[in-house]
């Protein structure tokens, strides 16, 4: 890595929000190779190599040290590795891409309000049926850690690739862990969030990989960029 590499979301609302955030700092992103290209330049920063990638690819690259800086969701990196803080630092919280990772159960469970209730229900269910309580989620790491912290012993995580909110109604799981912004999708699926069931309040962040190839030149470029963005110096 000769020059500083900054990765930004390649499509969708997140890409637009990133561009708007940069524009507020008078920084213009120009995509090379047209709308579908995966590289770009940042006006005034010729020595920054911009890569456009999916939010999850940016997370992986930050954790591996393949890029210096990147914008992605905190939920994505926290789910991808257990030693996140040793691998990267969060330099700025950007105020968009907000999503809470939450534990939700059917709203008819009027006897379950807290994680302690969930732990009891899980134990009851295993004792009564011989099967563990199932939690559908794509956030297996965050869920396992949160359940451990709340002493939920008799559960099992069911990997869910999509439409997680439908899992209880479909009989795939008893509870779910999913992201929510307004809670509307959960409500529409007759689910409620537990009182102490917020695992992570996530948003898009500018992150710095601690494992990337940092040298005098890339440090200087990053300092200039941070200065322009109005962030504290590295």
């Amino acid at each position: 890595m000769a020059s500083l590499v900054l990765a930004l979301p390649s499509k969708g609302r997140l890409k637009e929000q990133c561009e708007a955030w940069l524009a507020k700092k008078s920084l213009v992103l120009r995509q090379t190779g047209g709308e579908r290209g995966y590289s770009a330049t940042l006006d005034g920063f010729d020595d920054i190599q911009i890569r456009l990638a999916s939010a999850s690819e940016i997370g992986k690259a930050l954790l591996a040290g393949d890029i210096h800086l990147g914008i992605t969701g905190e939920d994505i990196v926290r789910e991808a590795a257990s030693d996140v803080d040793a691998r990267l630092s969060i330099e700025a919280r950007l105020g968009f891409g907000r999503a809470d990772v939450v534990v939700a159960v059917p709203n008819g469970w009027i006897d379950v309000e807290t994680m302690a209730d969930l732990a009891e229900v899980a134990t009851d269910m295993r004792r009564q049926t011989g099967r563990r309580f199932r939690i559908a989620t794509k956030f297996t790491r965050l869920t396992a850690q949160f359940m451990r912290e709340h002493h939920v012993a008799d559960h099992r995580i069911v990997d869910s690739a999509g439409a997680t909110e439908g899992a209880p109604a479909a009989g795939i799981a008893e509870a779910i862990v999913d992201i929510t912004t307004s809670g509307a999708t959960l409500t529409a699926n007759a689910l409620k969030i537990l009182d102490d069931g917020v695992i992570l309040k996530s948003e898009s962040c500018l992150m710095r990989s601690k494992l990337a190839d940092w040298n005098e030149a890339t440090n200087a470029t990053a300092a200039q960029l941070f200065n322009r963005l109005g962030l504290a110096r590295l």
């Binding site: 008819g108 469970w109 006897d111 209880p168 008893e174």
Partner: peptide, 17 residues
């Protein structure tokens, strides 16, 4: 208008409550 899908039935909820 609350619903109880899946394995947990009314009796479980009432008994535990």
């Amino acid at each position: 208008n609350l619903s109880l899908p899946g394995n947990r039935q009314l009796s479980h909820v009432a008994d535990r409550l």
